[in-house]
């Protein structure tokens, strides 16, 4: 029998895991919870953010036993990559300090993405698991498109060769897992299908796993909607009770978008916010849910 938990668990157990999804679906918390859970299994785990403007760039921060965090920075990754390629420190310095080269690195299409992806790719060998909190849909996609662009632009050169090796890793179900996160809302669910099409085109042998986040308590005894609900004109709710009923029904209705596409998905329930407004209890609760559902 096909088991969703198994599919997710297998995906998350790979060396390199990309957490995809549009903005606002909770990629950061979920990817962090996944990393926390893997670290708890005594695996050396790295949780990666891509150029998060709200965190210090480039630093490797210990986050607990077996767990580290890296906020990938283009500038530092570029210097590191140039150093690896050029070899001689003096020449590397001359190259990366050159104003025009800095300009080109920033402006040349694809280079930005390939350098960030390259840094993650390079780091993977040092950890059991690397969990990547991908930038929201549009930008995240450009990161993979860049590998194609690079081969288009730099045909044959060393950059091209590196891009090819990266792409090989990303395509391999032995090495890399892709997971798509969505909310049970119409637009994010639809957009996640577009994202999935893109991933299939690029990594056809390595299909993504699916996870719907922040699912509201399912309170309806039946999926049949009463006429009072379908015929309502005003899209606003009238009371807490009305909202709870509508929301619960709407979510099951929306999730048909995935069901109709033949997608099997895991689910994480919405966690009530705590009083301290701190993120860490949320991450812990999410991590416990992942463990309870046997996703980890």
């Amino acid at each position: 029998m096909y088991s969703v938990s198994k599919k997710i668990a297998v995906t998350l157990d790979r060396n390199l895991v990309f957490v995809h999804g549009k903005g606002g679906v909770g990629k950061t918390s979920v990817s962090q919870a996944i990393a926390l859970g893997l670290a708890a299994k005594k695996k050396r785990t790295l949780w990666v953010a891509i150029e998060d403007p709200m965190r210090p760039p480039g630093e490797l921060l210990p986050q607990g036993p077996n767990l580290w965090h890296l906020n990938c920075s283009f500038k530092l990754a570029f210097e590191e990559y140039a150093g690896l390629k050029i070899g001689m420190p003096r020449l590397t310095h001359l190259f990366v300090q050159n104003k025009l080269m800095q300009y080109l690195a920033k402006a040349a299409p694809g280079v930005h993405e390939i350098v960030l992806l390259g840094k993650i790719w390079y780091e993977r060998t040092r950890y059991d698991h690397v969990i990547v909190d991908m930038p929201s849909t549009g930008y995240g996609l450009a990161m993979f498109q860049s590998t194609e662009n690079i081969s288009h632009l730099f045909g044959g050169g060393p950059l091209h060769k590196d891009a090819e090796s990266m792409l090989k890793t990303l395509r391999s179900p032995e090495e890399t897992g892709h997971i798509i996160i969505s909310l049970p809302e119409e637009m994010p669910l639809r957009e996640s299908l577009e994202l999935n099409d893109f991933l299939i085109r690029n990594f056809e042998k390595n299909p993504a796993a699916f996870l719907v986040n922040r699912v509201f308590p399912q309170i309806n005894e039946t999926l049949e909607l009463s006429p009072a609900l379908t015929e309502r004109i005003n899209p606003l709710a009238t009371s807490v009770e009305d909202y709870a009923q509508m929301r619960s029904w709407l979510e099951s209705f929306n999730l048909r978008i995935w069901k109709d596409a033949g997608i099997h998905y895991g689910a994480l329930r919405q966690v009530a916010p705590d009083l301290q407004d701190s993120e860490s209890p949320l991450i812990r609760l999410l991590c416990e849910q992942l463990q309870r559902e046997a996703y980890l």
Partner: peptide
């Protein structure tokens, strides 16, 4: 500048 260009060419190839 000359040096930087030649490194760049080595990395990216002549067609780029």
């Amino acid at each position: 500048m000359k040096k930087a260009f030649s490194i760049l060419e080595g990395l990216t190839g002549a067609s780029f």
